[in-house]
Write a protein that binds this DNA or RNA. Structure first.
Lengths: 110, 110
DNA sequence: TGTCTATTTGGCTATATTGCCAAATAGACA
DNA sequence: TGTCTATTTGGCAATATAGCCAAATAGACA
């Protein structure tokens, strides 16, 4: 039963894993605003160009971004439009943690 | 500018990272149906109990599940209700990959 | 052609993750 | 108390990830 679903779960996990890094989330958020070249992203992130290039490679291999070479630059953009809607629930998880923490402080008598 | 957003991106990445494993996605899907004890999940997944317990620990630390000890069993359930809605976009990524692959086959003259 | 800029790739080290076994812990119940 | 069951924790080895530097690649343009 688990094995039957395994393939699909693997595919989903691969996409999530590609997103599960702060720099890559940053890249996704920036690309929501519009395409970006590697150099712009590198400057914003403040890491080595090679590091940013590898993050973009991870996102590309997961099918999240596509690249477009124009001149001597490479422009990246999101492959699917909804990628950020996607965070509503992550936010809920984070918010509920804050609430629970507040509640546990309250139950300790203030 | 990146540094200002870093904290929030780290928090989001942590939640995604916790979800980014096939067994943990399986657990999340099962818990959508209702709470489960460790032993049931272990049987369904077919891994060592200690492995499943550690996966549950990862999900708990990320704020995705909560545990409830009753008798000598521990029941896990989802902490936020929306966790699976969340997959609409992951599915879009996967589907668009299939489409692009079909298109590239077509452009090669079939 | 040569040179400059933009990007990717290879190689390396440090660190993190996965999954198993064995041992520890906790509750139920005689 | 002792024993059984359920779960967690510690420890280990194998594998994967992250990030840097250096080198390779590719396009622009003189």
């Amino acid at each position: 039963m688990f094995q039957e679903r395994k393939k699909h779960l693997d595919a989903r996990a691969k996409v999530l894993k590609a997103m599960a890094h702060p720099s890559r989330l940053f890249i996704i958020e920036e690309l929501e605003k519009g395409e970006c070249c590697v150099c712009d992203l590198t400057e914003m992130i403040g890491a080595d160009v090679s590091t940013v290039s590898k993050h973009l490679s991870v996102l590309r291999q997961a099918g999240i971004v596509v690249d477009d070479k124009r001149g001597n630059q490479v422009f990246y953009s999101l492959r699917v439009p909804c990628i950020l809607n996607f965070f509503g629930c992550v936010e809920s998880v984070l918010e509920s943690q804050v609430k629970d923490h507040a509640a546990s402080l309250a139950s300790l008598g203030k």
